[in-house]
């Protein structure tokens, strides 16, 4: 009898495995769509304040936060904004040993690193300024965020350091250039969406209130829509996590999906990030799914797209901070 039950169980298991395999084979996406290889963990930090650790604040009647931002330079250097420990952690390429740059405040929320090594830090809520620092943590300059195009610091939703200067995104709708290519203040310029093809185009996205996302590519000089696509992601879409173009002009869009859950359902909801790589007509050319989504410990920036198309993700777990690198198959 037990043997019979084992046979039935094995049969069910084999059938289930077959169905899963068939599903995986069928889930190839549109023609020409490539998957990303399993992510490479390029950095792992435990929670804490020591070397090789990053700080997290639990939020005893205040906002729980983790490291707010990060950036990976083309050289492979990694910078983690460990603002809870009032510092930036800097890792040489391939090294697990860090040096630290004191930043003097725990209210910075984003960072970027200029080609000359200048560190650009955003404090949108308290000083409401962009602060420039050298690698010794000495403040070089600070520039007010609020002004033309930015009515309040809390409206800033991203910071981009580009060849033509520093851009602050406002309310996920438009970006304002506040510093020029030499990181000096300049007359403010406004554009819609996020840059594409070196700024000749921009990409904009918004939730369509039906559980999907509408994306548009606009020609920057004329404002003409050159591509538009609707992504009907169903009722699972929680938010748009990130959109950024790589140097080839491919647009990388990350959508935070959240399975609807019955009231009082046991366990946490099923969450994931669906990442899409999109061509010039917003056609899908690649995709991957990440099981890592934002936790209660707030972070200002979760993703970064390198010029070569590598997608970096900073993920938090109970154990610490993991920096992942997703590369699409050639």
């Amino acid at each position: 009898m037990i043997d019979e039950m084992r046979k039935v169980s094995l049969g069910i298991a084999a059938a289930a495995a077959g169905i899963i395999l068939l599903f995986l084979l069928l889930r190839t996406g549109p023609s020409g769509s490539k998957g990303a290889k399993n992510p490479e963990t390029i950095l792992q930090l435990g929670w804490g304040g020591g070397p090789g650790e990053a700080g997290r604040h639990e939020g005893g009647e205040s906002a729980p936060v983790g490291p707010m931002s990060f950036t990976v330079l083309p050289s492979g250097e990694i910078y983690i904004l460990d603002q809870v420990n009032v510092r930036v952690l800097r890792f040489e390429p391939g090294s697990k040993k860090s040096s630290q740059i004191p930043v003097g405040s725990d209210t910075f929320q984003d960072l970027a690193v200029a080609a000359d090594g200048t560190i650009v830090l955003l404090d949108r809520l308290v000083r409401r300024a962009v602060v420039l620092m050298d690698t010794g943590g000495n403040e070089l300059a600070f520039h007010a965020v609020e002004g033309d195009g930015i009515p309040e610091g809390g409206a800033v939703t991203a910071m981009f350091l580009e060849k033509d200067g520093l851009w602050l995104e406002v309310n996920h709708e438009r970006s304002v250039r506040i510093l020029d290519e030499s990181l000096a203040p300049c007359p403010r310029t406004v554009r819609r969406g996020r840059p594409l093809d070196g700024g000749s185009k921009t990409v904009a996205a918004f939730l369509d209130k039906q559980g999907g996302v509408k994306m548009r590519i606009l020609d920057t000089p004329t404002g003409a829509v050159t591509a538009e696509k609707h992504f009907p992601l169903g009722q699972d879409l929680y938010r748009i996590a990130w959109i950024e173009a790589d140097a080839s002009g491919a647009v990388h869009a990350m959508f935070h999906l959240l399975e609807p859950q019955a009231e009082n359902a046991p366990g946490p909801p099923d969450e994931k990030v669906l990442a899409l790589r999109l061509g010039k007509d917003l056609e899908e050319t690649g995709s991957f799914e990440s099981p890592h989504t934002i936790r209660a410990w707030e972070q200002f920036k979760e993703f970064e797209v390198a010029g070569v198309g590598t997608v970096y993700q900073m993920a938090f777990s109970d154990q610490g901070v993991t920096l992942l690198s997703w590369r699409y198959e050639p």
Partner: peptide
């Protein structure tokens, strides 16, 4: 906001005070 982030008022923390800001809010 258009991306699904939230505009909030919050007594955010010791260094911040009470603020008005657009921020992400996790499923927790």
């Amino acid at each position: 906001d258009p991306w699904g982030s939230s505009w909030t008022y919050e007594a955010r923390g010791c260094s911040y005070g009470i603020v008005h800001n657009s921020r992400t809010v996790s499923s927790e």
